[in-house]
């Protein structure tokens, strides 16, 4: 479930990145790298788990599935926070800078 949430997040962020390209004002590329990197690593995790559990891998307990979904959503929330912090620090549109420095009138 965590892998699934991560892959969906990766696909959505990549589509948004492509739609806004070549502009990178929103730094959406950061989200793409975070989610694709995690998706690839969780894919390996899933393969090893499948090798161990076989068909049972596809029939998890509802409680485990819920916990994994909760984890997946928390991972998405963490990635969004990381992205937001980088966006505000890099401030490609100069919004934060403009809020801190006001032009002198006249």
């Amino acid at each position: 479930m965590t892998l699934l949430v991560s892959v969906f997040a990766a696909v959505i962020s990549t589509v948004l990145w492509y739609k806004n390209a070549p502009k990178s004002e929103m730094k959406l590329g950061i989200l793409c790298w975070l989610f694709w990197g995690a998706s690839l690593m969780w894919l390996v995790d899933a393969i090893f788990e499948y090798a161990e559990l076989k068909a049972a891998y596809f029939a998890p307990d509802p409680a485990d599935m819920l916990n994994d979904l909760f984890l997946g959503l928390s991972v998405v929330a963490l990635a969004l926070v990381i992205w937001l912090v980088i966006l505000l620090v890099k401030d490609p549109k100069g919004v934060v800078k403009n809020a801190l420095f006001r032009k002198k009138a006249g």
């Binding site: 991560s6 975070l34 694709w36 990197g37 690839l40």
Partner: peptide, 19 residues
Amino acid sequence: WLTNLLWGGSVLLAFEHVW
């Protein structure tokens, strides 16, 4: 690209391990 993928994945997986 490689460092971005590795850092991105490692950070989110580290969070999973904390979880």
